[in-house]
């Protein structure tokens, strides 16, 4: 059965750590980093990589457009 795999790339410097993507993710993929970016925000990152299905909900709700979403079908 074809399976969908996804991945996100977060623009760490642009992220303001609002956590709206964490709330929006239906697969609980995203968590906030322990590190901070140059502005002092904890940025979003993929914590549970295998669960991502590339639905792009995180990217859609991100107010700063930090998230790029990739999706691929694997057989």
């Amino acid at each position: 059965m074809a399976k969908i795999k996804g991945a996100i790339v977060v623009n760490k410097e642009r992220c303001k750590g609002c956590r709206l993507c964490v709330v929006a993710c239906p697969a609980k993929v995203i968590a906030m980093s322990k590190q901070v970016n140059s502005k002092g925000y904890n940025y979003a990152q993929m914590a549970n990589e295998d669960a991502c299905v590339g639905c792009a909900s995180c990217g859609i709700v991100c107010p700063d457009g930090c998230i790029s979403v990739y999706k691929v079908k694997v057989d």
Partner: peptide, 25 residues
Amino acid sequence: IIKPENLVYKKPDIMNDRPMHYCPG
């Protein structure tokens, strides 16, 4: 997975890279 051909969502091109002054969220 992270290859240009698999891209499904990104920041629109006319939105530039200048950091926005709005509060987080």
